[in-house]
């Protein structure tokens, strides 16, 4: 039995998949704490889809895929800014139009050109088959992002909470926001390998949203979210060995299970607690 449970660790590709997933899951969870508080959750989704053509082209031209991803991410951001300024469309419509366009172009490139990369590994991720060069790229991106976030988390919190106060203590909110989006794009690129373009959104939203139900302090929010991101990613990668299923699907399902548990049982902000509080009042809460 124990031999069976330890079996995945006997394969180098499994060990690699587990630690890379855990690292990426942790950084994405860190970013999710900020993203979901600003109502920017869908930006993560948009970015993940928008970088697909860049990744496809990079593979086609044998460039590091992070370069291509990054360039098309920036191009998409500029396109969104342009459409927003030049039209009277609302933000969600602008995001919807731009990211689907980019995603469609990406699919087209992948489908009509004979490359080693297939559509499935971009859209659904392929951590089990990740190449060593890609591991290096992902590890560097994730490690650098993590160091920056650990060093600047309070400043970023202040910018996200109160830009005026950030300015009053001498920070530049614009610069911090640019830094945040650069990190977000970089980590989205990294997460593309583990869970694929479709599920990146879960990685950069669910852990933060779950932790938000469990605590009222930002520091703890980060600790809970990152722990959850690391554990679910590692366990998801590990479990996919036995289920022979999609790693990305497994990770996100695990995260959703934790979210549902928090949603129901969180001590203060869960549904049961809310019902209890409502029951304790003389008048029913409106």
């Amino acid at each position: 039995m124990i031999a069976l449970l330890l079996e995945p660790f006997g394969y180098q590709y499994m060990v690699k998949a587990i630690w890379v997933s855990a690292l990426v899951g942790g950084v994405c969870a860190f970013l999710s704490c900020y993203l979901m508080l600003k109502g920017w959750s869908l930006m993560g989704d948009a970015l993940a889809h928008a970088i697909v053509p860049g990744v496809a082209l990079a593979y086609l031209l044998a460039l590091p895929y992070a370069v291509g991803a990054f360039l098309s991410g920036i191009l998409a951001a500029l396109a969104m800014a342009l459409v927003r300024v030049r039209t009277r469309l609302r933000e969600d419509a602008v995001i919807g139009i731009v990211f689907t366009t980019f995603f469609a172009i990406g699919l087209l490139i992948v489908s009509i050109s004979p490359t080693s990369v297939n559509v499935q590994s971009i859209v659904l991720g392929n951590i089990l088959g990740i190449s060593d060069e890609d591991v290096v790229q992902v590890a560097i991106i994730a490690a650098v992002s993590l160091v920056i976030l650990v060093g600047r988390w309070k400043d970023m919190m202040l910018v996200f909470f109160d830009e005026n106060q950030a300015r009053a203590v001498g920070l530049s909110p614009t610069r911090m926001k640019i830094l945040f989006f650069v990190l977000l794009s970089a980590c989205t690129v990294a997460a593309l390998q583990t869970v694929g373009a479709c599920l990146v959104i879960a990685m950069v939203v669910t852990p933060g949203a779950t932790a938000y139900l469990l605590t009222d302090r930002f520091g703890r929010l980060i600790v809970i979210a990152v722990t959850m991101g690391v554990v679910t990613s590692a366990v998801g990668a590990y479990a996919s060995y036995f289920l022979d299923g999609s790693t990305g699907g497994m990770i996100v399902v695990l995260q959703t299970v934790l979210f549902l548990l928090a949603f129901a049982f969180a001590p203060k902000h869960g549904r049961l607690a809310a019902r209890r509080a409502a029951g304790a009042q003389v008048e029913p809460a409106v």
Binding site: K154, M157, F161, Q165, V169, T215, D216, R217, F218, L221
Partner: peptide, 25 residues
């Protein structure tokens, strides 16, 4: 700066202590 009430996200996960500490950054 003491902001208008509408400018603040009151559901942000910070305690009174945390907010006052932001003045010390």
């Amino acid at each position: 700066y003491v902001p208008q009430a509408e400018e603040v996200d009151w559901s942000f996960p910070v305690l009174v202590d945390d907010v006052v500490m932001m003045g010390r950054y």
